[in-house]
């Protein structure tokens, strides 16, 4: 379909009900509305544009197929975000199985490095504009291992509880807690180092 049918006044709930009855145009409007958010979630987890595009598209296809199961307990975009997260987690698990675990990675998993880091006492983001702050967060996220990044995204951006993260990542609550702890420590120190870079 060449032209995007914009329906700014129609709420998501109404479009979802129409799409549930097989209205593809209504679904197209929903995709147009939320494609960036769904893509952004896939990209934040995968850190790769092509994979993020593919997985977000797959999420929309699955969303259409499972639309009848959507009961409206959460918002449509939250429901779609959960679908794309699950697809990303599956993909990351497949990739993890394929790559050999390095000693550095194991060290990071055990928090060997993060535990030695100095505690950050001053907010390293104070006075930053939002765009710059987001750019720095993005830069720091890029340097985290996928386990640390994923747990941080699910907790801080998706507001999931430890138990729910453990279920989705197929690991124990203890593992979630330690990963989150090390991810935060590393994040705080990276942001502090960016602040030092700026000042020097």
């Amino acid at each position: 379909m060449a032209t995007q049918p914009e329906k700014p006044d129609v709420p998501d709930e109404k479009l979802v009900r129409r799409a549930q009855r097989g209205d593809m145009v209504a679904f197209e409007v929903l995709v147009g509305r939320h494609r960036d958010k769904i893509y952004a979630r896939a990209f934040s987890m995968m850190r790769n544009e092509d994979e993020a595009v593919d997985l977000s598209q797959e999420a929309w296809v699955k969303g259409w197929q499972r639309l009848k199961q959507f009961q409206g307990e959460s918002s449509f975009v939250t429901w779609m975000t959960r679908i794309v997260i699950n697809l990303c987690l599956d993909q990351l698990r497949k990739q993890k199985r394929q790559r050999a675990e390095s000693i550095e990675h194991l060290e990071e998993e055990l928090g060997g490095v993060e535990r030695q880091m100095p505690t950050v006492t001053v907010n390293p983001t104070a006075g930053l504009e939002r765009t710059e702050l987001r750019a720095r967060i993005d830069r720091a996220l890029n340097l985290l291992s996928y386990e640390h990044r994923t747990v941080l995204i699910l907790h801080e951006f998706e507001d999931l509880e430890y138990k729910e993260i453990a279920k989705r990542m197929q690991c124990s609550i203890g593992t979630v807690m330690s990963r989150l702890f090390y991810a935060r420590r590393k994040m705080a120190n990276l942001m502090a180092s960016y602040k030092r870079e700026e000042l020097s």
Partner: peptide
């Protein structure tokens, strides 16, 4: 850390046209 992350998720724009994507 919780404070600066809250509500500041990096944004990413789809790197292709909406029509092509759809």
């Amino acid at each position: 850390t919780k404070g600066f992350l809250a509500g500041n998720e990096p944004e990413a724009k789809l790197p292709e046209s909406g029509d092509f994507y759809w």
